[in-house]
Design a protein around this nucleic acid. Sequence first.
DNA 1: CGATACCATGGTAACGATATCATAGCTTTA
DNA 2: TAAAGCTATGATATCGTTACCATGGTATCG
Lengths: 334, 334
Amino acid sequence: MTTIHDVAKRAGVAPITVSRVINNTGYASQETRERVETAITELGYIPNVLARSLRSKRTNTLALVMTDITNPFFTVIARGVEDTASESGYTVIYCNTDESETGEYKYAQILAQKQVDGVILVPACSNSKTVEFFQSNNIPVVLIDRSIPDVETDVVRCDSVSGAYQLVKLLIDLGHTRIAVLSGPREISTAEDRVTGYRLALAEAGLAGNELVYYGSFTQAKGYDLAVQVMAKTSPPTALFCANNFISIGALKLLRDSGLRVPEDVALVGFDDLPVNMVIDPFFTVAAQPAYEMGQRGTELLIERLTGGAPDECQEVILPIEIIVRKSSGLAHF
Amino acid sequence: MTTIHDVAKRAGVAPITVSRVINNTGYASQETRERVETAITELGYIPNVLARSLRSKRTNTLALVMTDITNPFFTVIARGVEDTASESGYTVIYCNTDESETGEYKYAQILAQKQVDGVILVPACSNSKTVEFFQSNNIPVVLIDRSIPDVETDVVRCDSVSGAYQLVKLLIDLGHTRIAVLSGPREISTAEDRVTGYRLALAEAGLAGNELVYYGSFTQAKGYDLAVQVMAKTSPPTALFCANNFISIGALKLLRDSGLRVPEDVALVGFDDLPVNMVIDPFFTVAAQPAYEMGQRGTELLIERLTGGAPDECQEVILPIEIIVRKSSGLAHF
DNA sequence: CGATACCATGGTAACGATATCATAGCTTTA
DNA sequence: TAAAGCTATGATATCGTTACCATGGTATCG
């Protein structure tokens, strides 16, 4: 391992001068700079960022903690984070909690040990333990996609209530009166908010008595499972609103397996689009969240806070949702 | 920030004793152990792994460098790597090269700076620069999925030649005689191997004169593009063999856009399955590689090498491919 | 022309942990 | 009972870098 001392010796300068050249801090004459640079390439010197970070107390590393890395929605967020972070010279550590609270806390420990400068968190629960842990260790946190009650952090999310309202309103306008919502876990803000939007739309249409609310989790298997339950009712709904893409896929699978056609027999709308490169024939009517921008804005906020450019109070950024009408919602019903 | 010194002071011992308790190295009496542990929890002490790694020269960190993080095939590999690594106490840094040689080399620098213990690499090119760079910095490398000529490393991959042969043979057995292959970049071993397998099957059937070989890249857009080219021929093929899942999707899209039915008008087979939770109705006949096991085995090999449990010579692990026949290949033709 | 500012460079200490060696009491063994 | 081995603990040096302070030369200014 060649160190900064080896380079310094070869270039005939002090280590600190090499450091200045590498980091472009302080002064260095053109001539010294060149001598150092040739020494670096001749020796194939690679700075040791562990030592650097230990001394400087900055790792230039951010962590992205999310709940389901297999979901393209989060993969796209990750892209947004990665691109934005690397523009500012940060690297990103990705962590997958699988929607587990203990997994999340376990990762929090590891990340603090690794001295990450900041964390972008998609919380796996409504519990504030993880956030408080980070904050007590002076690690700024930005929440993304989901919020947590009674916590002081920056947040980047979409207006799930409004998105859900619009989707359900669309179904009502098409003539549906028996509409079910298949949602995620009750403790997750987005799962709740989407149910709230659903209720708003029903209430407005005088259908408050027809509520069919199912909570579960944001997975295909659970989507299938919830669809089994709701379609087994004596008078099953004519339309389903699914709270995310995987629930939509699971529900659609159950409907097909039951010999029901979508949208002819049952209409389907849901949150979160699938990425173009994974889909042959876009089918789902969805409320599409700007995942890439969510990652981007979240990272920007975090970096601002790290570099002191952020205001004292926490910010909440709410990005717009786009309703994309495709085939699964069908035409006017009845 | 509370340090190991603070803990030591509180527990009335030397820092090194705290270190021993934390790491379970050396001796410590039950009583001391307890005093240290209560001091740790009382102070909320978090060890600084930067300092630890700087001194011990081990980061317990592996890097997974892959070419396309949006491709489920690689996402699943990543899962295999993650699970295996964390079982042995390693954390994983994920890097996405987007199939770019320069991106790959750039990441190599960063990873060396971060002092990763080892690297699992899906090479973006047939060039050995990156591997040699790692090796010259004493960082062991395991290649996964793709191999590189003239390089001494462990490799975990599948037999692409055989998988391609079997898929194309299946098409021939169904009666097809004009079959095209849409492959990835010429420099990538898997792209080449799959063409080789295709050629083998044709030659065996006495169809060597009918070869239709298209190289491109492993993306949906390129799959579409290559399909445009091949279907524009005066006597277009009656079957396509696509070298990966994204090419398959792109090709299928073009066929649908051209009003052609699959498999009735054109049959389609390809490499790499799509994950169940992303698909409603499995359609593609594929050669499925055991992605999870590939990640797993690759990581095991790497860890063995790090802990000195590996033999001197490099190992090449070749995992079996499963041919899954579904609808896209159709029934007997003509 | 002395004060002030900027440029260029270096010495020393410190970041927070562990490797290495040392010490000393106690137990086992021949 | 002396040698050897185990248990329990600590002192010191060091990993590779940068923060901080210091030095001296040259340019600028009132």
